[in-house]
Amino acid sequence: MSNKGGTAVPLLAARDLVKAHGRTQALRGASVELHAGEILAVTGASGSGKSTLLHCLTGIVRPDAGSVSYGGERLDQLPEKRLSELRRTEFGVVFQFGQLIPELTALDNVALPLLLAGVRRQEAQATAGEWLERFGVRGQEELRPGEMSGGQAQRVALARALITGPKVVFADEPTGALDSLASEQVMTALVHTARESGTAVLLITHDAQVAAYADREVRLSDGALAPVGVTA
């Protein structure tokens, strides 16, 4: 299913990441590889540096030391403009909540990445409609995020993250605010779509049941990563 530790060149690779927030050492030498089409779970207790790792991997923050390579480019050295472009075209990001623009309808929120890429509004909306249907939120096109349930909003967020056909989707506790049934619907939608389109997923979670949707798990503790599944 995936290239577990295989010889293939990883899609995204971080080496010895170090990052401090003030006096708090969030990452101390974290290394991780993500292969094309793979679903990888990063688990760890709260405060173990999971979110900081995601921020480093997406180029939202620059690590104090270490490297992040993606498709031959060093993300930790790229200018902000190129990073924004990568996040817009090659990456999709889903957070626990907040990434949808509260004033825009579900349809416009999903169409937004296409609009940013210069696609005409009608065309973007038509494509967005298809994606909403795919995630089972048809009929909610005209709702604003505040008018949707948490599970619906997260599926809209997933549609928005996947509409540009990204190579990697980063999901930071995507079901953190949901009950178990909504969480199951969101995760199933994510896993099915990612498998169909061959999108790699980096899934950050503290929940073992969510991590079980992944092909592989790495565990962060004290700012460093250890693979899970290798018998000690």
Binding site: H55, T58, I60, S84, R87, R88, F91, G92, V93, V94, F95, F97, G98, Q99, I101, P102, L112, P113, L116, R160, A161
Partner: peptide, 16 residues
């Protein structure tokens, strides 16, 4: 600001 930070992180350019 929290929503804006999430939107920027999700790829909406700051200029927009």
């Amino acid at each position: 600001r929290q929503g804006l930070a999430a939107q920027a992180a999700a790829g909406v350019p700051r200029a927009v």
